[in-house]
Nucleic acid binder design. Structure first.
Ligand SMILES: [Mn+2]
Length: 307
DNA sequence: ATGGACCGTTACAT
DNA sequence: TCTCAACGGTCCAT
């Protein structure tokens, strides 16, 4: 789900970019985005479980383009899923299953277009598909990293440590994770839209916001790890934090109604859940390719128990 | 008028 | 065995 409306919210900090600006530098790829887009080209074959390498070719086309511009990519993949979005996952699983059955029925009735329409709605990218892309990429000498958990955190680690100069994705969460530079909507020609953390102040409402404050705003507005309090989105979350003036964010969350007129007192568990969500953004485990070991995305603050 | 919730559509590429 | 998220529209509450 990402952060609802975040890209629109940071529009004034967004600029057109061409990936050739990263010539002779490294960028990290949220490869799932390519895999997912590439899967539409062969949705029918995937639904029928026919063998196809069209999604691999689609990813290779992107790699060709980056190579042409002398950009060095590091492909990042998801590992284990965090058990935090079960409800949404269940709904998606159901939707895919229904569309697969409907598609097969249309096929039996000879309604080819209707069938194809259903098949595009039951696309599921499997670890096996990711593995094929990994093997094809490694064959051409391109580095791949399978994150221990979410690719998001892994991409942010590479960005924050300066191992890459930009992250290429479609997911606004990457800003919340603290990436220094993110490129969204990059097409096959290498054109995309760039958001730099250091430019967030170009958004009127975000003048003076630190990455920590920005992350807290995102969490209050609703994120994958914690739904928002009913009636609270980015704008109200932003105003609340401005009003609270650098007070401890965890206390602000617990007493959110003091900062947002239109809501009542939050549920008793909200404060602790906010804290847990924040720590998931801060301390999720990632792979450090230099030390070759698992480390938290950020070093634990002194005196903080990350549980 | 504004912000937020919710819904359906888009993607690929012939 | 089984990973999406952004966008644009409408409707509703404030
Ligand atoms: Mn995400």
């Amino acid at each position: 789900m990402g952060i609802q409306g975040l890209l629109r919210f940071v529009k004034d900090a967004t600029e057109d970019v061409h990936v050739k600006e990263y010539a002779n530098q490294a960028v990290a790829i949220d490869t799932y985005c390519w895999l997912h887009k590439g899967s539409f080209a062969c949705a029918e074959k995937l639904a029928k479980k026919e063998k196809t390498d069209q999604y691999v070719k689609y990813c290779m086309k992107y790699l060709d383009m980056l190579e042409l511009h002398k950009v060095r990519p590091i492909l990042v993949f998801d590992g284990c899923n965090l058990p935090s979005k079960e409800l949404v996952e269940h709904q998606r699983h159901k939707r895919r299953k229904e569309n697969l059955e409907k598609g097969k029925q249309f096929l039996r009735e000879g309604k080819l277009n209707a069938a194809r329409d259903c098949f595009t709605k039951c696309i599921s990218v499997t670890p096996a598909m990711a593995l094929e892309v990994i093997q094809a990429a490694r064959k051409r000498g391109i580095d791949c990293i399978v994150a221990p958990y979410e690719a998001d955190a892994q991409l942010a680690f590479l960005s924050k440590k300066g191992i890459v100069q930009a992250v290429i994705t479609e997911d606004s969460d990457l800003l919340c994770f603290g990436c220094t530079t993110v490129i969204f909507k990059m097409d096959m020609l290498g054109r995309g839209q760039q958001v730099k953390m250091e430019n967030l102040g170009r958004v009127k409402n975000l003048v003076g916001f630190t990455p920590d404050l920005f992350r807290h705003m995102c969490i209050l507005s609703g994120c994958d790890y914690l739904p928002s309090v009913k009636g609270v989105g980015l704008v109200k979350a932003c105003k609340a934090l401005k009003l609270s003036k650098s007070k401890d964010a965890y206390q602000v969350a617990r007493k959110l109604h003091q900062y947002i007129k239109s809501i009542g007192p939050v549920e008793a568990s909200y404060g602790a859940n906010f804290e847990r969500a924040d720590k998931t953004f801060l301390y999720q485990l990632v792979f450090d390719p230099r030390k070759r070991e698992l480390v938290p995305l950020n070093e634990y603050a002194s005196g903080v128990n990350p549980d």
